[in-house]
Design a protein around this nucleic acid. Structure first.
Lengths: 215, 215
DNA sequence: GGAAAACTTGACCAAGCGGTCAAAAGTGAG
DNA sequence: CTCACTTTTGACCGCTTGGTCAAGTTTTCC
């Protein structure tokens, strides 16, 4: 799979009103479809139907299936990394991490499709965003890891490798979105009760925070 | 996707020597292919080529693509859950959980394809093993959760919901297998150095164990 | 050694799907 | 209103892919 973006109007032509609206509609439908069936498992027709437009029309806005996929992926990526950006060195370590974890959990519970879209992409070798991962993402993580390392060296956090900590936060917070069916199969209908999300958040938070507090 | 197994000789005819050998070969190739590309993304031809046999021949052993998929899934499932079976109420809680986590990490690192196969299946709604999840798996988890709950009520573990603890162990231990490309993108070539697996294991272990020890 | 059963395969088919095209319908600036 | 431009679509094409089939080859067992 290639990585070029190549939407209809590649050049700087500013999009018309109709273009803006229809691109939005398509990308929203595409997120739904791609996150459910994966890239290969999704068809242009599915996206077209969900968008309420014909397949050729959809192809008028995005020349190739891949372009839709990459666009929706890129769009969601920025939003997805926002919480990590907001981890500030000035704050109290435990409090900063608590907020980070809380926001990640909140996002996973409110937009599980986004979480699944990434999970699927990465699971299959991240063909479309490998470049992004090893540049922008790496840079961001390196930056925040050194913040955490600083906290540790100041004795404000238990000694733990910052990268592994970040991975663990990702793993645990996204688990409930990505593996939803499994969670449901094991826990049954209580998953739908009000307050379940909060309860999970509480469990994740207390375990991780306990693990990183100095004692 | 249906869930029937339907291999060539449905009846109790015991397989011939050749059947046994070729089924093995096919299932091994299939694990590789399915775990890399997912069900929809894999083709029978790929599996046939990897098995060194023709497509019609492969279809002689498994009537449909799905049958191969379900077989390899079922086969790996049992192996995958073995460590949880071995969590014994008689042992020391922290020591039991340490061993469980260690074994899970070891399996994820030695057989990442198996981990990815499940991850992909569940991510897409577990069409082929939903039944299994809500019966056998649920039963097993319920059983072990009550062991953990007992430990907590005896004050031998910090108060944490056993189900969430199990989910967190699954999430963290499988993260390094399922999201390998992401880990690589962020950490670079050090991932291939000897001892990296041990280092990750140590990080996961220390964080979770710290989180569950009574203080 | 030979017949029956098990195994193997090249050729083929039908459906699904990504993508094209030409022509029709709609939109908007002057 | 008009004309150029944008948007929309039915029909269609070619390739991939799951699956079949009939005919050939090998194995097994007496």
């Amino acid at each position: 799979m290639d990585v070029t973006v190549n939407t209809k109007k590649d050049a700087g032509d500013k999009p018309t009103r109709i273009q803006e609206i229809n691109r939005r509609i398509i990308l929203e439908a595409a997120l739904d479809v791609f996150s459910t069936y994966g890239f290969r498992g999704s068809t242009i027709d599915q996206i077209a139907e969900k968008s309420g437009m014909s397949k050729p029309n959809l192809l008028y806005y995005f020349k190739r299936k891949q372009d839709i996929y990459v666009s929706v992926l890129e769009e969601t990526l920025e939003e997805w990394l926002q919480p990590l950006h907001e981890l500030k060195p000035e704050g109290d370590p435990v409090e900063e991490l608590r907020r980070y974890i809380s926001r990640k959990i909140e996002m996973s519970s409110k937009r599980p499709e986004a979480s699944r879209l990434f999970a699927n992409e990465i699971l299959h070798g991240a063909p479309a965003i490998k470049g992004f991962l090893s540049t922008s993402l790496k840079k961001l993580v390196d930056e925040k890891a050194s913040v955490i390392r600083q906290w540790v060296s100041e004795g404000r956090l238990a000694p733990i490798d910052p990268y592994h900590l970040i991975f663990m936060i990702w793993a645990t917070t996204q688990h409930y979105a990505d593996f939803d069916v499994q969670v449901r199969a094991v826990l049954g209908p209580q998953v739908d009760k009000a307050g379940f999300a909060e309860q999970s958040a509480q469990a994740v938070l207390s375990l991780i925070l306990n693990g990183i507090k100095v004692r």
